[in-house]
């Protein structure tokens, strides 16, 4: 296997272009390690992004918080700008795996792995986040996180996930995650909710569901139930019911579709109550 540590984004893009599907991008590597163990082509290349400083920054402008794809869950938990503008990312980062994983797991890796039960992705979708998609020779393209994770695979062979943009606005947000045991487990179902308030009324709302469909999805029915209403237990219950209707869960070894749907209702209701 060949190994590269590009210093600049362009250099990485050239390598990606050159190796195509044989290129393996290394961020934290917590998912990539398993892919490599399954075996790779002899002429594969491992492209370690760690030297590209631009990909590891957290910055804010007047309107947006920009998060580099190499930012780790541990950094999200602790960074002041995240706490200030996007506290739900800090919350969800704290529920990702355990401390050892948070040290290395990156937000970019969380998006690109596109796991239907990922922890950071629902928060990003609830925040209406989008991200740069870079490739050699082309201009950066911007896509919503929801769109990115709905594709299989999330990115094409020559593409690199660039910075993630989270719009800054006063908001309320909450996260609910259900697991079979309490520690070190991916969600059976999780729900992230974010609302912008206009006085006592919900001006805008985003509800994102993990473990409730083949990818993390928005619950648009639940969002409609929230927008224009005053938060109350009835509204929360209605949002839960709508979210359950929006969900398209699977039965697998970890949980049945019926249970997952019930969890979507309960967790959405609780997330709204917690706002």
């Amino acid at each position: 296997m060949q190994y590269y540590e590009p210093n600049f984004i362009d250099e990485a893009l050239v390598l990606l272009d050159r190796f195509g599907t044989n290129a393996h991008v290394l961020a934290g590597g917590t998912r990539l390690r398993f892919a490599l163990r399954r075996g790779v082509a002899a002429d594969a290349a491992l492209i370690n992004l760690k030297r590209i400083a631009d990909l590891g920054r957290i910055e804010d402008t007047a309107s947006d918080l920009w998060i580099g794809p190499l930012v780790t869950a541990a950094a999200l938990r602790r960074h002041v700008l995240v706490g200030k503008h996007a506290p739900l990312l800090a919350t969800t980062a704290a529920s990702l795996g355990a401390a050892q994983l948070q040290t290395v797991a990156t937000i970019g890796g969380n998006i690109v792995s596109a796991d239907p039960a990922a922890d950071l992705v629902p928060a990003l979708i609830a925040y209406s986040a989008d991200a740069e998609i870079l490739s050699a020779g082309d201009c950066a393209r911007i896509a919503t996180v929801e769109d990115i994770v709905s594709k299989r695979p999330a990115l094409q062979g020559r593409e690199l996930l660039g910075r993630i943009r989270v719009p800054i606005a006063p908001h309320r947000a909450s996260y609910q995650k259900m697991t079979t045991r309490r520690g070190l487990e991916m969600a059976l179902v999780s729900v992230a909710v974010s609302c912008r308030m206009g006085g006592a009324v919900v001006a805008d709302a985003r509800v994102a569901l993990a473990g409730a469909a083949p990818s993390v999805v928005r619950a648009r029915g639940a969002e409609r139930a929230l927008i224009g209403s005053r938060l109350s237990s009835e509204v929360a219950q209605a949002a839960g019911e709508r979210a359950a209707a929006d969900a398209d869960p699977l039965t697998d070894a970890r949980a049945s579709a019926a249970y997952r749907r019930a969890l979507v209702a309960t967790l959405t209701q609780r997330a709204v109550m917690e706002l």
């Binding site: 355990a98 045991r181 309490r182 070190l184």
Partner: peptide
Amino acid sequence: IENPGFQDYLMPTALD
């Protein structure tokens, strides 16, 4: 066996 490793065989953690 579908879960021969520790990933899906859930032994209690310190939080449990």
